[in-house]
Design a protein around this nucleic acid. Sequence first.
DNA 1: TATTATTGTCTCATTTTGTTACAATAATAC
DNA 2: GTATTATTGTAACAAAATGAGACAATAATA
Lengths: 242, 242
Amino acid sequence: MSKILPSIDEYIPHLAYDSVIFGFNGEQLKILILEYHNTGLFALPGGFVKRNENLDDAVQRGLKERTGLDKIYLEQFHTFGDISRPNPAVMRTILEANDHKVEEGNWLLDRFISVAYYALINYNNVEPKPDELSDSINWYAIDKLPPLMMDHGKIVEKALETLRNNLEKKLVGMNLLPSKFTMKELQLVYEAVLGEKLRRTTFQRKILGLDILKRHEKLFTGGAHKAPYLYSFKNKEPIEHY
Amino acid sequence: MSKILPSIDEYIPHLAYDSVIFGFNGEQLKILILEYHNTGLFALPGGFVKRNENLDDAVQRGLKERTGLDKIYLEQFHTFGDISRPNPAVMRTILEANDHKVEEGNWLLDRFISVAYYALINYNNVEPKPDELSDSINWYAIDKLPPLMMDHGKIVEKALETLRNNLEKKLVGMNLLPSKFTMKELQLVYEAVLGEKLRRTTFQRKILGLDILKRHEKLFTGGAHKAPYLYSFKNKEPIEHY
DNA sequence: TATTATTGTCTCATTTTGTTACAATAATAC
DNA sequence: GTATTATTGTAACAAAATGAGACAATAATA
């Protein structure tokens, strides 16, 4: 059972990252949360930085291991560096629940500074995979998160705040939707992120006014009503077949 | 001459901070830049984080040592973590120019991840003090910076970008002006930060509309014209006597 | 062919912003 | 004193952006 722990020789001590991975299921904004074996502890997916690895690459690597997704839109939003934030007791609990013997002074029990990133991914492309210490990884709606360990609750809060503030600017980098989408779907994303309803006509006019969308064929869903157009972002190659 | 180098026992390895300290002289935005002894190298003021010290506190401490200012408006804006960023040769040059013998493997020559902060301070309250390794610290206008070492040029760029994006929101935390100031002075700050001229009447209406200013007595400068009012930010105690 | 739900667009009201104008000063020159 | 000058505070109107509602144009179904 007991796997090999990350070694201090391979990683930079005292430095970690945590990632807030946002996904969208069509109506709600969700986040990927890990649950550790036999501990009842919930946490953000995180990891360590190799000694010869760029910080950004370390996060991409962790994200790929967990979601299978490559070259994801990632944004660093804050570095958490209070002394109070790490909790050796929590770390020890996690490790021991996994049958690791943890000697006093193990680097994993030290103080950690954590660089936090958020990612916007397409919920449907993803097959979440737990890491060695966790028994599950699941999507949770942002208003129904379990209590998170250490300061991970604060990290999520700050991620959401940053995302809300930058929504306009980050629209284009957005990966929450498939490459072709309807105006309605885009509006739902906005509403899920901002947490408020928007007016359809104003929203449509504003988005079209930004001149960042390319219009494609119509989408016939079988509903008894006029069919909406599909759009894609001008700066991205749309994948054919919706 | 040779002072004692910071010891690995006291500080967290591989972790540093750099600060972009903005000041305003009435017309231009300036930044504090260090010059290292006998090297011709220019750098941002930075430092290390003590093992039992909050990250934010470390930056406050460094700022206080360099400017004498306490409890400054500081904002963390990015963490720079590329492997290419540190340059052991540069660090060795700096240390050896200060008559330090640097053994191979010294922690100061390692890779460093740097958390970058910017500060907004009142130019006139400040008596910049160089640190042990530097022979001078000076204000430089943001469009006339000397070539900075390592990635410090990029750090400044990103600081400016962040400041411009957040100007509205950070207005209140602003310390670029004395506690009482005229509308004209405030407009000059905006123009210096944004790098563009603004229209007087629109600016005035907009700022007053935010309802964050308290109006005080008039300021008589001796000019042959109507005297402007002095204002202060509602959330800050104005210091009497302009 | 009528009905229903939803979409794209138009119109008009409201709000915000851009621009100009102008009266109200503080000093100075006469 | 009184005219002159530079700058400020604010009003007034124009232009642009946004809010809110109306409505015709569909895709299905009854």
